[in-house]
């Protein structure tokens, strides 16, 4: 067991290294660099950047060096816990991300909680009462949820909110709280803005989860161990929840690996449409501006979280599934 964990850990480190190389290459891939997009931005707004200034900027950020030197300098910084300066914001990357991280996590966790709280009971019901009216309704709504892109749903709701309630329902705060310091009133304002993005973000996930749970559970319901459990005189809900539902939940443990990066990035497009101050749109902007420090840090963070999440879900599977835990031990 310990040898297994050690091997997994070594592989995880290797994977993260590969992620740093890949993310660096991908960010460097488009022609030009931050300075060219900076110049373009300045001239678009009627400004002017002198050649000397350009050279100075390039030197300052090390952009005049060859690629591998830039990579090594970046890695050295990262390994020392520094992530550089977000070029566009002229502030340390950790601060820029940190500002948005908490709000992103609040929105994402709310969406995940809503998704699971809705999807599990509906999925179980749909499977246990297969082909009932309720199952058909859940299936119908579920397919709509799967088919409609979340940003479309967001746009429609924004439009409806604007047209019929004359209210802008985007964002996470009302205008007067957006820049205000944290107070109870601001928290309450956040709580009032939270349901809409939570529902939009959770809808597609819920639909998907319902389908998966229904399919997993249908696979299990006819198994002999369910019939024997029933034949032992247990009540029906106990039979269902203790045995097939428990087995049907196992595959979900492996989805934790994807949940973790989702929690810190959130959904990029929906956040953009709804104007949510989360990490997702930040990444998009950084990529457009070719801000390699900010984009690199976010991509690296997501990569590391994916690896950590996968590692955690493997541990979780070991813990909950004796078939995996005791494999090879008779």
């Amino acid at each position: 067991m310990l040898a297994y964990l050690a091997r997994r850990l070594a592989l995880a480190v290797l994977t993260i290294w590969a992620i740093t190389v890949l993310s660096f290459v991908i960010i460097k891939l488009p022609p030009g660099d931050y300075i060219t997009s900076y110049i373009a931005q300045m001239s678009a707004s009627g400004g002017f950047v002198s050649e000397a200034e350009v050279q100075a900027l390039r030197r300052e950020y090390g952009l005049d060096q060859p690629g591998y030197v830039q990579y090594l300098r970046w890695m050295t910084m990262v390994l020392h816990g520094r992530f550089g300066v977000a070029l566009e914001w002229k502030r340390p990357v950790s601060e820029v991300i940190g500002d948005r991280l908490w709000l992103t996590m609040v929105v994402s966790v709310a969406a995940i909680v809503v998704t699971w709280a809705l999807a599990m009971p509906i999925g179980i019901y749909s499977a246990v009462r297969q082909y009932s009216t309720g199952d058909y309704v859940a299936t119908f709504v579920g397919f709509i949820g799967l088919a409609v892109p979340s940003f479309m749903l967001a746009l429609i709701l924004l439009y409806l909110g604007f047209k019929y309630f004359n209210a802008s329902i985007g964002g996470l705060f009302s205008d007067r709280y957006a820049e205000a310091p944290w107070t109870l009133a601001k928290v309450w304002d956040l709580a009032r803005h939270l349901p809409l993005p939570t529902l939009i973000l959770g809808f597609a996930g819920t639909a998907q989860l319902v389908r998966i749970m229904r399919a997993n559970l249908l696979d299990e319901l006819g198994k002999p161990y369910v019939v024997t459990a029933r034949a032992r005189g247990l009540s029906e809900w106990r039979v269902i929840l203790k045995y097939p539902v428990r087995v049907a939940l196992n595959p979900f443990a492996s989805t934790i690996g994807y949940l973790l990066p989702y929690i810190v990035s959130g959904s990029i497009i929906v956040s953009l449409v709804l104007g949510l101050p989360t990490v997702g749109p930040l990444l998009l902007r950084a990529l457009i501006a070719q801000d390699m420090f900010l984009a690199g840090t976010i991509v690296l963070l997501l990569g590391v979280l994916t690896v950590v999440g996968t590692f955690l879900s493997d541990l979780l599977l070991l813990w909950i599934d004796p078939r995996i835990r005791l494999e090879g031990k008779q």
């Binding site: 002999p224 161990y225 024997t228 034949a231 032992r232 005189g233 203790k242 909950i320 004796p322």
Partner: peptide, 29 residues
């Protein structure tokens, strides 16, 4: 069920839950 009339199936492997110990299922019953 189980109290007056008990049932034994053909396939003992699949008749037990794959994720619960034998004792867990016996004690429960």
């Amino acid at each position: 069920r189980g109290g007056d009339i008990a049932l034994v199936f053909q396939e003992p492997m699949t008749s037990f839950s794959p994720v619960h110990s034998i004792g867990n299922q016996m004690v429960e019953m």
